[in-house]
Write a protein that binds this DNA or RNA. Structure first.
Length: 277
DNA sequence: ACGAGAACCTGTTTGC
DNA sequence: TGCAAACAGGTTCTCG
């Protein structure tokens, strides 16, 4: 669920409660996320000060004063909730609460993930960790332009939708924003990615950046599980052009098409077949 | 080498 | 009404 804009929104919500704070208490309520927690998880984390909360693609990375880093991924259904007063939140813990972090300022940060596709682990060098090492270009750091995208996609036979979802190329785009970016760029999701170069590549690079920035601006998209750490909703879902809008008319000026849904690589793709080529 | 599909897990919605 | 199937924002492994 959480794609780059949602993870960035979570990062912004958590940062004021974590950066500069010490983790006074760390509780593992259950140990079965996608990959096992390291055996020293609680011990290594307890007492550490969080120097900075960063993000790499869809991963959150908390840099610790111990020199290590806490790597977190929300999977499909992971979410954080912040309770400003640890005492006030009391016992009300749910069946899918996995981790509780209490800071020296008294904030209680609870990680909940009912599908358990998320993960948390520790690394001595986050960038070199196997989970992050092979990630591709960070789409909003200024390096994503048409030339770069064209070079990455060159020679690939797979669909441009699949290429956008390939985290080794551009990191952070998921199913929703891939659909939305392709619509904005007027490119058919099924088009062979190797044919996206020149003007088409420029449009797609721009569309990816635009849609991610707009979504961050809106606090992400709230569909099912996702919520901001303060419990609020994102509202970019109201700005979707195609995602989840099967059967509705295409909103592009001068286009009389209708939004359809197809399945690519087992995932839903929404598009207007009339104006996406 | 590369791409499609299944698997991982639970909850909710849809359809018969 | 009830039950089963389909579907959900991600990643990784297997198989062809």
């Amino acid at each position: 669920m959480p794609e780059l804009p949602e993870v960035e929104t979570v990062r912004r919500g958590l940062a004021p409660h974590l950066e500069g704070r010490r983790l006074a208490r760390v509780e593992l309520r259950r140990g079965d996320l996608r990959i096992p927690f390291p055996p020293d998880f609680v011990q290594s984390l307890t007492g550490c000060r969080v120097a900075r909360l960063g993000r790499r693609a869809k991963y959150l990375v908390a840099e610790l004063d111990s020199g290590r880093a806490l790597i977190m991924h929300l999977g499909m259904s992971g979410r954080f909730a912040v309770h400003e007063s640890a005492a006030a939140s009391g016992t009300g813990s749910g069946a899918h609460d996995h981790v509780v972090l209490e800071t020296d300022a008294g904030a209680r940060i609870v990680y909940t993930d009912h599908r358990r596709f998320g993960l948390m682990t520790l690394a001595d060098d986050a960038a070199a960790h196997p989970l992050l090492r092979r990630l591709g270009l960070e789409p909003l750091d200024g390096a994503l332009d048409g030339m770069t995208l064209g070079r990455m996609f060159a020679g690939r036979r797979t669909s441009v939708k699949a290429a956008l979802l390939d985290q080794r190329l551009i990191a952070g785009v998921g199913n929703i924003y891939a659909c939305e970016a392709l619509y904005r760029a007027r490119l058919s999701p099924g088009r062979e990615s190797g044919t996206v170069r020149g003007e088409r590549a420029a449009r797609l690079a721009q569309a990816v950046r635009d849609v991610l920035l707009a979504a961050i601006e809106a606090g992400g998209s709230t569909l099912r599980d996702y919520a901001q750490p303060d419990g609020g909703s994102g509202y970019f879902q109201h700005a979707f052009s195609v995602y989840g809008r099967e059967g509705e008319p295409c909103g592009r000026r001068g286009c009389n098409g209708k939004i359809s849904r197809i399945v690519q690589a087992g995932r839903s793709t929404f598009l207007c077949t009339a104006c996406q080529r």
